[in-house]
């Protein structure tokens, strides 16, 4: 087989794979504007009634408020914890560092359904389940490793002499942190914040178990799915998609920044 034919076949294969990955996403967007109750082809007429339905639904609004609250708090906590861990890994060597990093990074390898059950049992035991805060706590555990990863990659790029140079010029460790490390890591902090927010915004298994009556948007979708199956799911899904993708793009943009832009003189 010639190289060109192989290349062409691989491109076709890649195309098919992307079709497989994106067809459910496109389906949800297209059918959210389709008038038929059961979505199939040929398409019915264009409509906004599903958006109207969710817009008028107080449950959707309250879930959206909970989701925003949960994801903002989660992103803040996870970014903070992720930064602390990344900085410790960057700056210090110590005994049991392997165990320390394992403790910090393992949560994503535990299936969500198991985390959900364990969290439910534990938070009930502590008497703090069934609140929006319970979801924040659980989501922070799940999201902090991602924040750590992103921030650690950024700290990798710092000239190791910069922090020493700050001390050398009279900065205490705290001032060096504030004036050198944090400004340098800022793009990664923003990136980590957006990404963890997006992860929290989409997570449903753990939230479903520990949220109680404080449903987040994905939990609402899950419960709607168990009953009716009409395209209002798609309308909500499209909104969630737009929110997440915005966050991801912001995260991506900041992740790519080299952070060398001149700052305006104070």
């Amino acid at each position: 087989m010639s190289d060109r034919l192989i290349k062409w076949l691989l491109w076709c294969y890649l195309g098919l794979l992307l079709v497989f990955v994106f067809s459910p996403i496109l389906t949800s967007v297209i059918f959210s504007f389709n008038s038929d109750r059961f979505p199939t082809i040929p398409l019915g007429s264009f409509t906004l009634k599903w958006y109207q339905t969710i817009f008028d639904d107080p449950d959707v609004w309250s879930a959206a408020r909970t989701s925003i609250f949960v994801s903002l708090c989660t992103a803040t906590l996870a970014t903070f914890i992720g930064f602390c861990t990344a900085y410790t890994d960057y700056r210090y060597g110590f005994r049991f560092k392997g165990a320390y990093l394992a403790l910090a990074l393992l949560p994503p390898t535990i299936p969500l359904i198991i985390m959900a059950l364990a969290m439910l049992a534990w938070l009930s035991k502590l008497g703090i389940s069934g609140r929006a805060w319970s979801v924040v706590i659980a989501h922070t555990v799940l999201c902090a490793p991602f924040a750590m990863g992103i921030i650690r990659l950024r700290l990798q790029q710092i000239d190791p002499d910069l922090e020493s140079a700050a001390w050398n010029l009279g900065a205490s460790e705290w001032s060096a942190m504030k004036t050198i490390i944090v400004p340098f890591a800022r793009p990664a902090l923003i990136s980590a914040f957006c990404l963890t927010m997006a992860v929290s915004f989409d997570e449903f298994a753990v939230a479903w178990f520990v949220a109680g009556l404080n449903k987040t948007i994905p939990v609402l979708i899950l419960e709607v799915l168990q009953g009716t199956t009409d395209p209002q799911i798609y309308a909500i899904g499209t909104f969630v998609f737009l929110t997440s993708i915005t966050l991801v793009i912001i995260a991506q943009v900041f992740f790519m920044t080299r952070g060398r832009k001149p700052t305006a003189p104070a």
Partner: peptide, 18 residues
């Protein structure tokens, strides 16, 4: 990477319909 940040539930429901 994009699919990680779209609702897995909604995507599953799409397959259900498809």
């Amino acid at each position: 990477i994009i699919p990680f940040f779209t609702s897995y539930l909604v995507r599953t429901f799409s397959w259900y319909v498809l």
